[in-house]
Design a protein around this nucleic acid. Structure first.
Length: 264
DNA sequence: ATGGTAGCTCGGCTA
């Protein structure tokens, strides 16, 4: 049995108290973090080692973005893709070398894409689409069982957002983004593990904005975080957990952790 | 129609 978690942590240094709480309570084998907002040398390695997590693949940068895969199972880092071609730290790929041997885990932080869903007036939106298209070309060539997790910054289904109608022109839920993410899915035949366990049209959110006093009011959430697996690997998934309570913890991230368990 | 909050770092960007 191998369990893998994904969590956009919005500064790993500031968030260590709730990371410790999560790891102590859930005891996952591998934790994939996005938005660590620090450089490799600033990463809180010791705090993780004390909890039994001694294997790391960190791709950081100063102040923004950054991803980290932390594990109590030995791993080997084997790739850092720059699908935006601008030097931002948004991906790290590892291969487990202990239990769950040969499993590949890709940890990705897709660009948010700015406010205006038009690449002519908003460069960031174009960069987001370009990132997804380069990732799609990469996925087309994958030839081993792979799990890709992270903050995709897209909520593809109507049941992934609090109001489909009100978010149709909001970056993260526009038809163009959903179509572009659909091409990525089709390039490898990914299985959306979250939706295998919480079927459409059931409500499933992983993010609530900080820009309201109480995230519970109106429940204006979106499912921006995902765990997608190669078809054969997806068949080995035995459970999926959405830790919504973490949004209400002390000094929370605006995203919550997702966990998938595999019988390998 | 607008502005609302958070983090990094100390002005302004990113989300």
């Amino acid at each position: 049995m191998v369990s893998v978690a994904s969590w956009n942590i919005n500064s790993v240094r500031l968030r260590m108290p709730i990371v410790e709480r999560f790891l102590t309570e859930q005891s996952v084998d591998v934790l994939c973090l996005q938005e660590i907002k620090c450089q490799e040398h600033q990463f809180p390695y010791e705090a993780f080692r004390k909890l039994g997590y001694e294997h790391f693949a960190i791709h950081g940068q100063k102040g923004y973005h950054g991803v980290a895969t932390v594990s109590r199972i030995p791993l080997k880092e084997f790739s850092r893709h720059d699908w935006q071609d601008n030097g931002e730290a948004r991906h790290v790929g590892v291969e487990l070398t202990g239990p769950g041997q040969d499993m590949v885990i890709e940890n990705v932080y897709v660009p948010a894409g700015g406010d205006v869903p038009d690449r002519e007036v908003n460069t960031k939106f174009g960069q987001k689409l370009d990132f997804l298209e380069r990732m799609t070309r990469w996925a087309d060539a994958i030839d081993r069982p792979t799990l890709i997790v992270g903050d995709f910054n897209i909520a593809p289904l109507e049941s992934d957002v609090w109001s489909h109608k009100q978010l149709l022109k909001v970056v993260s839920h526009t038809p163009l983004e959903v179509e572009t993410l659909g091409k990525f899915r089709d390039a490898h035949g990914w299985t959306d593990i979250g939706r295998e366990f919480i079927r459409d049209p059931d409500r499933y959110y992983s993010w609530w904005s900080y820009r309201s006093k109480d995230y519970r009011v109106g429940d204006r959430g979106r499912r921006l975080d995902h765990m997608w697996a190669s078809p054969d690997l997806a068949k080995m998934a035995t459970a999926h957990h959405v830790h919504e309570d973490a949004r209400g913890w002390e000094k929370p991230s605006d995203h919550i952790p997702l966990v998938t368990e595999f019988d390998l």
